[in-house]
């Protein structure tokens, strides 16, 4: 494990960390000479690949694969953008200045986001990342928050509510356990209280990408489009 043993006291959380893939790098788009469109297409390609990795990771969250296929789909369709934004917040945490770190080689500042048609999203994401930056998230917290974001669906059609509830309870317990082992009794609650802002920001992100696709005809990969359409 790349993480010090003393930092990982909780089996479920250490499993979440170990099954995470290495951070993806952006592949520079070269299909256009328009710089801001190139940035946007590069970002969309990165999101599409991250989504693929996220789906693979979700299947390894203890309890997830035991859910019905319908519920697995509902949870992912509802929480995928939230989970991806936790990743952005985590990567941005160590960055200085006003950048958003989508990948090690894809750091966008306000002007770049505005040029790409993502001015609103930039503001919303800076607000979210500043909140997590102030909390100084640990790797364990970022991983469990991602899993919680996936589990915390408000999907109206849940096939088996009891199983989904048990899945949520397991993650909640792991977070509580982890924080009490660090003698941080308030952090679990604080992290859960960040979920409304996370969802609100994810909704804005979904709207932004759909708007770009529908109004500016920005081409999107099939998986990304399918997941955006599910919203």
């Amino acid at each position: 494990s790349p993480f010090p043993a003393h930092a990982v006291r909780n089996k479920l959380i250490s499993h979440l960390l170990l099954t995470e893939s290495a951070p993806l790098a952006a592949n520079q788009d070269d299909s256009t000479n328009d710089g801001s469109l190139r940035t946007l297409l590069t970002l969309c390609d990165l999101l599409n690949r991250e989504l693929l990795v996220l789906i693979g990771w979700a299947k390894q969250i203890p309890g997830f694969s035991g859910l019905s296929l319908v519920d697995q789909m509902s949870l992912l369709q509802s929480g995928w953008m939230e989970a991806l934004l936790v990743g952005v917040a985590w990567r941005t945490q160590g960055a200085s200045g006003e950048e958003l770190v989508f990948a090690g080689n894809l750091r966008l500042d306000k002007a770049q986001c505005r040029a790409a048609g993502l001015a609103d999203l930039y503001e919303a994401l800076r607000h979210l990342t500043a909140k997590y930056q102030a909390m100084n998230l640990s790797a364990e917290e970022a991983a469990v928050l991602k899993a919680v974001a996936l589990a915390n669906s408000d999907a109206s059609l849940v096939d088996c509510p009891d199983s989904v509830q048990r899945f949520q309870d397991g993650l909640h317990e792991a977070l509580q356990d982890y924080e009490s082992s660090r003698r941080e009794q308030h952090r679990a609650g604080r992290l859960l209280m960040s979920l409304p802002l996370l969802r609100q920001t994810a909704d804005r992100a979904v709207e932004a990408f759909l708007r770009l696709h529908r109004h500016r005809r920005v081409p999107l990969h099939k998986l990304l489009l399918e997941m955006l359409d599910a919203k």
């Binding site: 789909m73 992912l76 099939k222 998986l223 399918e226 997941m227």
Partner: peptide, 20 residues
Amino acid sequence: KEKHKILHQLLQNSTSPVDL
């Protein structure tokens, strides 16, 4: 589930290649 074909395929652990 036709509308959510790719996600469905990915979750089913399909061995056939998925067109993304």
